[in-house]
């Protein structure tokens, strides 16, 4: 379970998050909707401890993240996965090494067991043949898939997705969304995804929340938000 209370963050006097409250139940997926630049990625990075908040509390499975010591934070992070907007694959390492890197530093495995875990993970994202490729040889969609495989290879209990479909064509974006859904059903992590892609939201979300003006303005199921008359919320559901 993830609980965020009264979270605030500003940069150079510019307030990005003012008073964010959010609860994500164990095993469920919450999608944070919001326009570009509203602070969605900042929220996610604050939750995982990459950006220290100015005020507020973040509790992950009962443990307070704000002010946590480095060692304890690292230990908590090992139970978490994070898919970056640009996948953030280590470009000096092959796909195999990218997947092995977090795994061999967390679990002591024999060489063949490690290889089997990597292959299994690549199979689940449909990219077994890319094992020896370098990140520079992969397309945007492939990079996202490998990023997803890397984030999930340690079986994290918490999964955070930063704009998982941004920069992808609609077909690949939908494929990635279904892949995320499949992975959620397989591993059942507690997830937060930030996006402005409504197709992705409809596929993966158990609940959605709209971040606007530094606060969560509305939250509920997709059906509940669709019925919302508020202009900020309804703007996400406009069909042309």
């Amino acid at each position: 379970m993830i609980e965020v209370r009264g979270l605030a963050k500003s940069f150079n006097g510019l307030s990005v998050l003012r008073d964010v409250d959010l609860t994500v139940e164990e095993g469920s997926t919450a999608v944070i909707l919001g326009k570009s630049g509203v602070g969605k990625s900042v929220l996610l990075k604050t939750i995982i401890g990459l950006i220290p908040p100015d005020a507020g509390s973040i509790r992950i499975e009962g443990e307070e993240v704000v002010g946590m010591k480095r060692k304890a934070l690292d230990s908590l992070r090992r139970q978490m996965g994070y898919l970056f907007q640009g996948a953030a694959l280590y470009d000096s390492m092959s796909v195999r090494e990218n997947l092995a890197f977090p795994l061999e530093r967390q679990v002591r495995l024999k060489k063949d067991e490690l290889e089997e875990r990597i292959l299994d993970q690549l199979r689940s994202v449909g990219l077994e043949e890319a094992i020896d490729k370098m990140p520079s040889e992969l397309s945007g969609g492939m990079r996202k898939r490998i990023g997803l495989a890397r984030a999930l290879i340690t079986n994290p209990r918490i999964m955070l997705y930063d704009e998982p479909t941004t920069g992808l064509d609609p077909v690949t974006a939908r494929e990635i969304s279904y892949l995320i859904k499949k992975m959620q059903e397989r591993y059942r992590p507690t997830c937060i995804a930030v996006t402005h892609d409504m197709t992705c939201t409809r596929i993966i979300a158990d609940k959605a929340a709209v971040l606007h003006d530094g606060v969560i303005q509305h939250e509920g199921t997709i059906q509940e938000l669709e019925r919302e008359a508020d202009e900020v919320v309804s703007s996400f559901f406009v069909t042309v």
Partner: peptide
């Protein structure tokens, strides 16, 4: 250049969120 590029493409953050220093 190498570490700078890793920083701006979030590869250093990716290491950090994996619990690796």
């Amino acid at each position: 250049a190498e570490l700078g590029s890793m920083r701006v493409t979030e590869q250093i953050d990716a290491m950090e969120v994996s619990g690796i220093d």
